[in-house]
Design a binder for these strands. Sequence first.
RNA 1: UGCGCCGUGGAGCAGCGGUUAGCUCGCCAGGCUCAUAACCUGGAGGUCGUAGGUUCGAUUCCUGCCGGCGCAACCA
Length: 524
Amino acid sequence: MREATRYFLTTAIDYPNSRPHIGTAFEKIGADVQARFRRMEGYAVHFLMGNDENTIKVSQRAEELRIEPKPYVDEMARQFRKVWAALEISCDDFIQTSEPRHHVGCQKFLQAVSDAGDIYKKAYTGLYCTGCEAFKTEKELVDGRCPNHPNTPLRAVQEENYFFRLSAFGDRLLAHYRANPEFIQPESRRNEILNLVESGLQDISITRKGFSWGIPVPFDPEQTIYVWFDALLNYITAIGYGTDEARFRSLWPADVHVIGKDITRFHCALWPAMLMSAGLPLPRRVFGHGFVYNKGAKISKSAGTAIDPMDVFRIHGADAFRYYFMRECPFNGDGNFSEERFAEVYNADLANNLGNLYSRTLSMCIKYFDGRLEGSSAIEPDAWLAGLDLSALVADLREKIGDFEYHVALQRIWLEVLGAANRYIDATAPFRLAKTDLAACKVVLVNLAEALRVIAILIKPFLPRTAEIFYRAFNFEQSQGWDRVGNGDVPARPAVPDWHVTAALVGGKPAPLFPKIEVKGPDA
RNA sequence: UGCGCCGUGGAGCAGCGGUUAGCUCGCCAGGCUCAUAACCUGGAGGUCGUAGGUUCGAUUCCUGCCGGCGCAACCA
């Protein structure tokens, strides 16, 4: 068997200061859709996520809780993974930057960059706010004070740090952007970075002195590696850089880093420069997705606008949650979340359209044929398409999903495929044929069963649970197991002789997949 | 201030150099009854923020302005 093409994708690693909110969930879902889609296309996907743990805040928080940092980050990682699992995020690996594999790889990398002559030591003088435990720039100050801690005087602190010669990489970065237009996506992010790098880069301090929680600098144990330099390296340390070179070589470079638009500069300027210095290939693509706002307001923990994803999908299910964000919030731009809008989208697209199509199809099969469509193999189920060209549609969806244009892909599926099925029922009226022409009625139902199968495949990356329920509504697995079903199976009618309903029934009827959300009226 | 984004029928969003500007919700009128009071058809409603420019032609490209927002480099 031919070795499948590898596809390595990553998300940003998260600060484990607090639980994930819907904004971080948005990113993971978007990446997961890509991972699932690529698997369906036959790629050997490696999907990496993780937590960013070597930060001052983590050690402070652990201290507040009177526990050691390591048990603290382990517990947070457990909670994060639990949320991601509940959201059906299909990552293959989850790295914590406190793990030995990361420490080893980081030190090796830093040494490599140092050997390349891109690291030097320099005294840095700055105003330090003890309230924030951070340096402040002149621009940030309000009346010479830290805006967050106006009563705490700033201290002038001088510290010797190691610097990375980022400024030396400007021309090479620009050359790379020009030679690889798809390196930074979407276009607006690319323009931003082009602008930034053209205006000149400054060297960046990459170590801190006096912190015990973090990765020691190999050639100066008094210093630890600063979080940004350290965090980016997770993409290579997780796959064996410094610990398993063969594996590293088989997976690197990454096909895409999925990140938030706020950290594009680190991924598109600093990160490639680091890799160039160490003599490693650059990732093929960086995709900076937009943000999710809470009714137009920025998601902020302090302002109380953060929403816990669990609150939403605990009630309505992970698939509904995933659908909302993928359909409603363009991945290359910003979107909004509100309970009202969620209920609207859920009821219209999932309950009335998708779920109801499932219900009415199965109900008729059960009611008129006791669930058995005998002789189905003699029927060519393409009437329901009414001229819709499925292979052209799939080709277009490949392009759209490959470019992270999920909202467009979903709109097409709903408008054209679900629409075709619902219109077909209306046009043929199988409920009427059941009284006059059972054979004709069966033809319609075989068509509808086929429609459910096609829909199952098309929505598989987005709504994995629902897709599986659709596929398993009939005995299609006798010809192809669900786990192996891919986009190539859309036009391939299953060679199963007598299609029959295998769906779970409640009281002889299919249970509603997406029970409608009762919308509260203004006086409720 | 610099950079970026947004301003499209009542609401929320797509779209994008070119046939009658789409979708969802809401509203109105029909049809249907298999289904989660769901589904299907049709209708009302927009001079695509504003003033100019480029073009045979702009909602779509450029510039100014108005309004909203995000980011501004050791700050995630």
